[in-house]
Design a protein around this nucleic acid. Structure first.
Lengths: 219, 219
DNA sequence: GCCTGTGAATCCATTCACAGCT
DNA sequence: AGCTGTGAATGGATTCACAGGC
């Protein structure tokens, strides 16, 4: 309905990026920031910063810059991070464990409220954070009982689809998928994929290019 | 020097994506795949698949499709994942721990050969994988001694720059940065950022859009 | 007939450059 | 004078549509 429907995807990604230095500036009581400074800190073009922000309103003052505190508040409102979100996670291997125990998430407004695993042997284990691993088939009832906003998949690839379907069945609309598998989703759901090996492979490709350019062999 | 210098970035990302189903097909002894099928499995457009591949050569047979085994081999060669890469990691908190212990990486050709931390209290701890946590200031000598290709940063944000500088000083050219901090890099280095909260914030934004469209409130 | 490879067309995103406000 | 907001220009990436080869 709104013009917010045709915001470039990369813009959203950058808004989250901008909020990082802004948080630091709020703590340091720096009141004003220019698009140039913010751009530099985030490694983007100043015009890009201004355009990104202008999609959502006029947050700056010409000749002056942006009021840090206000800008951060606006960005949080836009992203939806001005409230807390509750998460559940499926797949309590190493990665899953490290995510529930990671308190960066809590600081940023995300609360893990349930942990699941498909493997019965894992069920019942109590985690340092206080949660107890639940069997995955109870996802739908737990989501209803506890109220959960988002699901995270940290299962092995072959189980990712099953995990996803349990989450969909529980009527969860947003999933962060750490498995290497592409998950088939109903239209109305949003899946964000984070394949860590893909990231490494990107890095490796660009490194090789670098070495070729310089006619140097890797290590 | 080569035409490979102006390959679209997204193409590289997708090549890694394509390799996932191909690996499964190799295991299942499926000999041929069409761009349409591969596209469907990866959630992209078939023309996209063909164009991505065509940047690097003519791997398919008209009227037939792509030979799975050969295509996978070519993609690996292109990405540089046809050999093993050795990794070190700085920052042995929960996330760092889970990454070194994660054997997905080993399966994909990445070997952790050293683990570092800036905190002296962490130094000396022996990890289940066999590595012992080393003090971060020894990074340069270790990299030289052991031969390391890539660095991974899993420190808290405030220490990310220090970690990065130690890695650069050790002459490492590629870094995967999991911290929320933007790292200042020398020209010749490649840093890939993976900020997990950015991913969550994207998800949250798109979810809110979804709810607004339907005039439904979250949960 | 079928499916790849690819120029042309379209769509999207970034950057420029300057008008407009303080 | 300084910095934002924004139309216009540029640059990239995706998709179309069909020619080319099996």
């Amino acid at each position: 309905m709104t013009k917010e429907s045709k915001i470039p995807r990369p813009t959203i990604e950058r808004l989250a990026l901008y909020s990082r230095p802004l948080e630091i500036f709020v703590k340091s009581n720096i009141p004003i920031i220019s698009s140039e400074k913010l751009a530099e800190l985030c490694g983007v073009n100043p015009a890009q910063v201004r355009k990104d922000l202008a999609y959502f309103g006029e947050f700056g003052v010409r000749g002056v810059g942006y009021e840090v505190r206000e800008l951060l508040r606006e960005i949080k409102r836009i992203l939806g991070t001005d409230r807390r979100w509750s998460l559940c996670i499926v797949g309590m291997g190493n990665l899953g464990m490290s995510l529930v125990e990671n308190d960066n998430f809590k600081q940023r407004g995300y609360d893990f409220v349930a942990a699941f695993d498909l493997d019965p042997k894992k069920v019942g284990i109590e985690l340092p954070c206080g949660l107890t691993i639940q069997p995955a088939h109870t996802i739908p009832e737990q989501v209803r009982a506890v109220g959960i906003d988002l699901g995270i998949i940290t299962t092995p690839s072959r189980e990712a689809q099953r995990a996803a379907e349990l989450l969909f069945r529980a009527n969860l609309k947003g999933i962060l998928n750490f498995s290497a598998a592409q998950v088939r989703t109903p239209e109305c759901c949003i899946v964000e994929n984070v394949d860590l090996s893909v990231k490494l492979e990107n890095l490796v490709y660009h490194l090789e290019m670098l070495y070729k350019e310089k006619n140097v062999t890797a290590q």
